[in-house]
Nucleic acid binder design. Sequence first.
DNA 1: GTTGGTATCGATACCGGTATCGGTATCGAC
DNA 2: GTCGATACCGATACCGGTATCGATACCAAC
Lengths: 334, 334
Amino acid sequence: MVVKKRVTLKDVATVAGVSKMTASRALRGASDVSKSNVDKVRQAAKDIGYIGNHLALSLSSQRSNLIGVIVPSVANIVFAEVLAGIAEAIENSGMQPVFGVTDYDATKEYDAVRNMLSWNPAGLIVTGLDQPEDTRRLLLNADIPIVQIMDTDGDPVDVCVGFSHVRAGEAMAEALLATGRKRFGYVGCGLVQDTRANKRLGGFKRALAKRKLGVIGIETSEEHSTLAAGRRLTAQVLKKIPELDCIYYSNDDLAAGGAFHCISEGIAVPEQLMLAGFNGLDLVKSLPVRIATSLTSRRDIGIEAVNVILRRQREGSDTKNRCFDHPPHIDLGL
Amino acid sequence: MVVKKRVTLKDVATVAGVSKMTASRALRGASDVSKSNVDKVRQAAKDIGYIGNHLALSLSSQRSNLIGVIVPSVANIVFAEVLAGIAEAIENSGMQPVFGVTDYDATKEYDAVRNMLSWNPAGLIVTGLDQPEDTRRLLLNADIPIVQIMDTDGDPVDVCVGFSHVRAGEAMAEALLATGRKRFGYVGCGLVQDTRANKRLGGFKRALAKRKLGVIGIETSEEHSTLAAGRRLTAQVLKKIPELDCIYYSNDDLAAGGAFHCISEGIAVPEQLMLAGFNGLDLVKSLPVRIATSLTSRRDIGIEAVNVILRRQREGSDTKNRCFDHPPHIDLGL
DNA sequence: GTTGGTATCGATACCGGTATCGGTATCGAC
DNA sequence: GTCGATACCGATACCGGTATCGATACCAAC
């Protein structure tokens, strides 16, 4: 046996005793092909283990079944769940997701978008609305549906699916104020680039300001959000400002870390100190103490993003410049 | 302005006043092209916003820069971290990962592998060693590096990167036995298909059997592993067999759920009841009680898997049929 | 027998790049 | 002035499919 070469459509055609074209037709729609030839081709394809070549298919037909997805991180469960939603919605659509990771780095994001576009995807899903100018231009020039997810505070290139982080921050502040809390702290691992967490903090502060209140203790760090960081930063902020009666975290991981700190230190949560995270992770729901959080519908956002693209494919551009809002739902955990 | 058409290499060449071929050369290696032409072409490409077309590139050059990755789930943080490792290792290699999700379903896995192969990837990373016959044949016939990850208990198609789950289960049993525990329970959300968890349980039981011991309480469920499920199943198993002094869980999520149950019920962990999970998640390290776990190096496994493929690309098939072992490290949390 | 419609098939031209090879220009050496 | 080597460039043939259009066969209708 010689070198194992890839089985091509031509091989199938030869075995089946028909032309390449007939084999091609037989393997897909199968209109305009006699029943007997369809069978022959199908059988031949199976016999010699024909797989097909999407590269050639997409190049030739000028459309691909790829949907590009660009997220800042996959290790973050929040984006992992968005991806899960995307994978779920894409199922059975004949499409295939391709993921790119930016690591919260604008340069990598630009590269990822560019790279993605070079695959002629049917659509592109990118995270956030605040791409730098050059990346935005790339997206604008791409002649495919672009869905920006997880944020609606801004001007979408095409369509956005998510919610307003500003409003989410405001809403949480209002809910916490309604419980009578007055001395607020903030703990965040907001990489400076985490514009969405910053938007939430902005909304949070604004809502407090309306009641002539403010964030009186703040502790942040450049590292990634982890439970351990949450634990440590909570200890720090409480050491500086022990009289806090409520801490808002940039996300649930940090808040849960804070909860662990409180459990260890015997601080009564939420009686003595109320904790509020963001995302509504499974983790928070199962915690031995009750903390507040904003439940975001990551999965739904992923699903909707895909659906926007699929609809666009079928029906043409109906929903240009629209925003799909999936506002978070506050759970005070009380 | 008419219909916006995709900018092709030919357009670049025209603008730069050279042939397609020269433009092609100028934009990549740039050997055999005069400096002045390289500049002209580069400038032209930038001016008209040339992006390139990977489909054509890969089809024409008969090699792609894709690395296919097939995992059962992305919502599971363990695989998310593997993906993160993969993304990290792939960075700057010029390669691009494409992910497929199987949802622990063999049929979907077959489809995913097939689909992936049709993109002519440079390599394929799949999860586990226990693919059904037809999928395995697909992998065997593919003339690219195939890396099976997360498991080494079996016969790899090509290369495997992971660890023995049987030994991992044994090791945990031995470590727990060494602390003097005698009445073992097991809690698992082993979908029947979760062969790896079953391998661990098998190893665990075998090690106990050597000491004439066994698992005297077992509680499983078909659902996905969640903290809530861990909490519930722990309550159930303890209700039936209250005298357990140690529970082995199929993973950390369940074990952490068990920990939450114990905290709520005032059960002293680990004094009264020892809990042992699997994976060594961040979650476990930050828990307010100490539980045992096996630290698996997900990220490293992802990185190594990619490196196997990258090495193969450069050096040819040196490591045919090899196994890369990344054994977990037991942390009793004491 | 001729005509027209339908079903079926194949030849050919692409899609947008790269590999390959041959052709020209330039230059130093003899 | 001729020659060979080197640098540079473009024509052409692919890669593996699909779109398109024309060819052929067959059958019913006139």
